[in-house]
Amino acid sequence: MLIVAACTRGGTDVSAPIADPLPTTAPVIAAEALQTRGQIVESWILPDLLDDPGQVIGEARRAVYRSVSGLDGGVREVSGAFFRPPGQPPVGGWPVISIGHGTTGIGTDCGPSQESDLLGFWPMVRSYLGEGYAVAMTDYEGLGHSGHHPYLEPHSAAFNVIDAVRALRQLFTDASARWLGFGNSQGGQAVWASNEVATQYGAGLELVGTVALSPAANVTAMADLAGSQSLTAEQEALLPLVAGGVARYNPKLVEESLLPRLTAEQESRAFSCGADAETLRDELIPPESISLDDERSVAVFRTALRRIALPQTPLSAPMLVINGLADQTILPQWVTAAVEESCRLGGRIQHVEVADAGHGDLGAAAYDVASTWVRDRFAGLPAASTCGDAATVLPAE
């Protein structure tokens, strides 16, 4: 199936095929990796730097926990931030929100748990603590701790999100086994993928649903748009990060000269979150150095993106998807195509679009919808579905 959808920076419509996902089998997981998922390697009390006027923090810790690679099935150590509210938990323990954060970078210094404001994600965490949820936020493999971050690789991201729940329950024994995944952009893809693997990989936990905001579920059209020089300004700025990140587990992109070959030191500096990283990345990997000037090179990049596109398998639990109709990073047509395919596989999805909203801020009404949806899932209420119908559209604010 090819869905035509794109627009150029000038707003002129162009044809760009969104290709079907190429389902990739998860690796065989080593016995040691299975047995140690969520195990705490080390943890620290987070210093008193977080803005907490409402005193919603009962306990806050940064920790390194064990998870699993979605590439080879081996043990990986992953960092994250973990919180529980103050006071006594409800019967059954604190319900858990596992957050998949949006793109910060792909260097080891790009983990939100290293920063006093969680790289801007603290208000989201604080909001959920105030509503009575324990919160786990993985940094993802290779961000915030040693390793090589496999950017947008869905199995690794899913395992990290689920094992963050296991880690939180190791740290805070009054946390429930019932959990919900919440993520935006890269994190939207991560929690969507966690929903797909939860039945098997999430044994011992109970997923009640996932909320995917502006999810990077299927970005295969970036290959064709780059080849025709029709990327939006937002996509063009992101292209070196996407291509460089995906090349980490698709060496063919470098071997076939689609990307410039960097030394280990150059790659580390270019993809860090340091002050000069973006400037250095523009120097070492300017968009024009990504060679997508013929069908062969476009096809190689498209195939790499198809392998990480969602859906890969049916969902395990209900899902809410919200995206903006003016999103110039993850185009709304791409999200619709992914939602429709997941519905076709049997998923129960409520799809909400926000008029005139872009990629980053969907507006207060959208977050109110998400908050209500989260409460209803933990309350055990039936989840609505728009599968087979048009998405609900919220007016612009």
Results as ranks from 00 to 15, higher is better:
Ala6Phe: 03
Leu280Met: 13
Leu241Gly: 10
Pro251Thr: 09
Glu341Ile: 01
Arg9Met: 07
Ala63Pro: 00
Ser257Trp: 01
Ile57Lys: 02
His148Gly: 08
Thr232Arg: 13
Glu340Ala: 14
Thr279Phe: 00
Pro21Lys: 06
Trp179Phe: 15
Ala317Leu: 01
Val135Lys: 01
Ala299Arg: 05
Val41Ala: 12
Trp192Met: 05
Trp373Asn: 07
Gly80Lys: 08
Glu234Met: 02
Tyr367Trp: 06
Arg348Val: 10
Gly93Met: 12
Thr303Asp: 14
Asp139Phe: 09
His149Val: 05
His351Leu: 12
Ser257Phe: 04
Ala217Cys: 12
Met1Ser: 14
Cys273Arg: 15
Asp389Asn: 15
Arg66Met: 10
Gln350Ala: 10
Ser67Asp: 05
Thr386Gly: 07
Ile97Gln: 03
Ile285Ala: 01
Gly130Tyr: 13
Ala223Met: 06
Arg66Gly: 08
His101Lys: 10
Pro154His: 03
Ala16His: 13
Ser15Ile: 10
Leu331Gln: 15
Ser156Lys: 03
Ser289Trp: 05
Met1Thr: 13
Leu284Lys: 15
Pro260Ala: 12
Gly202Glu: 08
Glu236Ile: 02
Ile162Thr: 10
Pro286Gln: 13
Val352Trp: 07
Ser297Gln: 13
Val161Gly: 09
Thr220Gly: 00
Val91Tyr: 08
Leu46Val: 05
Asp72Asn: 11
Val14Met: 07
Ile40Glu: 09
Ala157Thr: 04
Ala379Phe: 09
Val96Gln: 04
Leu168Asn: 07
Ala30Ile: 00
Ala264Asp: 08
Phe172Leu: 09
Leu362Ile: 11
Glu32Val: 10
Ala217Ser: 15
Asp376Tyr: 01
Arg166Ser: 03
Thr104Ser: 11
Glu42Pro: 03
Gly107Phe: 03
